[in-house]
Nucleic acid binder design. Structure first.
Lengths: 338, 338
DNA sequence: TTGAAAGCGCTAACAT
DNA sequence: ATGTTAGCGCTTTCAA
């Protein structure tokens, strides 16, 4: 493959016998050009396989028609659905979405944000609230519209499109308590740089504190996405002298890991022990027993975030945060304590 | 939020008391600048929150440091893992990945490709071989390095980094035949614009044709990703007078749908009927019974594709296609015919 | 309705 | 080692 010199407006203009300004108009404001002229230009465009150079366009117009999203990882059903919806809404408005992944690393997230801004991102979708001050300072300094998703806060410093992780987990915990479980264990992934998990944990603790006679053991796992490690944590909890009667996991992936390890160990879920998850991803219904969990409206979250960013881009800067409702989904992995 | 005038090289240069060329060098070839000067510039950069404008950079250097990928959908475990690996390798070389989704629509794929090229994509990752001539013509006209993944062809017209869907499915079918199954049914998603599925189907047919006494029924489902529709197809197959003894599904998502419907119908898998999948995504191990399927090395595929594109970008244009090996993974959903 | 020309922010060749 | 300057492809006044 040789180094290619791509066709430019000049090439198109020459071939069509018009000026570069007219070519530009045909592409951006076709109604300002005679139909006949437009046709000539279209023929030239097709013949050359011309596509406008984004760099030139961005430079001249100062609009990139681009938004960015930085997510921890694509390889996780938790984000996939919301991002897909986010992208679909943007695409309908002719906006390109740039996605990058930070692997849960705040420094890498910062660099990715900078890269996206360099690429001209007119707005950003970020996951959760936990990030260093310098990242927020950068966003403020450069005045980048941004949405924080997958969680919610009351303050007006940022725009949130998410749900209340603390409240949702408290509710699930109350459900568990109401079903007669008092020896409760939690398997949780790291809470460092992960406010969603931290909030879920504190939500559970909140509910348990208020319930007389309830006890809690927390087992930390080194990953929020490794079913294997969750399985190990499960095994350790099962080795305790006094076993818990229910294990609440900080998300569905960990819960599935626990269920699978239970099967391997010959422990019956939910007869011997109940298990719960969080997120309601596809596998929650597929696993046996099906998983009691918290349903999160991922698609609506992605859509709402996109619509908010589009509104801001259109000049409506007085936007408000959106809090979405979650709900506990009762399935077979949680059973009333006999 | 007001319209922001972002800091430019000029601003940085002025603040640091150097020329724009020096600022540029600090960013791109720091070794050509005295450490002291570099420090001054860094201070100015930090103070202004400067990030180089991508448009200007791309325009001046004719390199975008950007690659593109067009995939059918993010919301599907089949692509997520490979794309994640693809992105990680690119990120290590400072390349930004732009991802867009076509929803299995060839026209939309074409438009997405054009958009990515406009954005300056220096290379593209595409899924499968099935696309209209005009798409290939555009790629050729503009001389865009591109890799076709998730499938393989012998020709030298394009670069393939994938596996042989036909061969893999034939192998799985032979395994099924060797286990004594002769009444075989297939649940397959659409093969239009989906060469992977078409190849799998022909691979199965190939094996069955060569086996004396074997019969095949094909049931088409309207989606390659809907377990629900696959469940319906399963039900229809179960309503046949002479039931098949095994149902091979064109991918794991459909196989999981079939297994779940079997459970709902009180049909035991694999005692009453065997089921197989294709892809070996996470759920294959999670579902009960665990799924016999074809393992595809998704991560390696993504990595290899990225490395190939990087090599081409580095000027090594004599690259060759890469064919990856798949293997049949025997689990519990397939049983020897008694 | 169309054209001429300036200028967006940056890099790279050349000059010092 | 650093500075000067032309020019990348496009949009957008302004003029005709």
């Amino acid at each position: 493959m040789t180094i290619h010199s791509n066709p430019t407006v000049d090439d198109v203009a020459k071939l069509a016998g018009v000026s570069t300004a007219t070519v530009s108009r045909c592409l951006n404001n076709p109604e300002k050009v005679l139909v006949a002229t437009r046709k000539k230009v279209q023929v030239a465009v097709d013949e050359l396989g011309y596509t406008p150079n984004f760099g030139g366009r961005y430079l001249a117009s100062n609009r990139s028609r681009t938004m960015g999203a930085v997510i921890p990882t694509i390889e996780n059903a938790i984000f996939a659905r919301g991002i897909q919806a986010f992208q679909e809404v943007l695409a309908n408005s002719g906006i390109t979405l740039l996605i990058s992944t930070s692997g849960y690393d705040p420094q890498l997230e910062f660099e990715n944000i900078q890269a996206l801004v360099s690429q001209g991102a007119e707005g950003l979708l970020l996951i959760g609230t936990a990030r260093p001050k310098k990242t927020y300072e950068f966003l403020k300094l450069r005045n980048i519209p941004h949405i924080i998703a997958w969680n919610h806060r009351r303050n007006r410093e940022h725009l949130y499109v998410g749900f209340d992780n603390h409240f949702a987990m408290r509710e699930l915990t109350n459900t568990v308590l109401n079903m007669g479980h008092y020896r409760i264990a939690i398997i949780a992934g790291p809470t460092v740089n992960n406010d969603r998990i931290a909030d879920r944990l504190s939500g559970a603790q909140d509910a348990i504190k208020k319930a007389t006679g309830a006890s809690l053991i927390i087992k930390f796992s080194h990953s929020n996405s490794s079913p294997i490690l969750a399985g190990q944590a499960f095994e350790e909890l099962m080795a305790l002298e006094i076993r818990p009667t229910v294990i609440m996991c900080s998300n569905d992936a960990l819960a599935v890991g626990a269920i699978m390890r239970a099967r391997d160990m010959g422990i019956n879920v939910p007869d011997d022990i109940s298990i719960t998850g969080f997120d309601d991803i596809d596998v929650a219904e597929i696993v046996t027993p099906s998983l009691t969990t918290v349903h999160v409206p991922h698609r609506r979250m992605g859509q709402a975030a996109a619509e908010l960013l589009l509104s801001i881009r259109a000049g409506k800067t007085d936007q408000k945060s959106i809090k979405l409702e979650t709900r506990v989904v009762l399935r077979h992995s949680l059973q009333t304590k006999k």
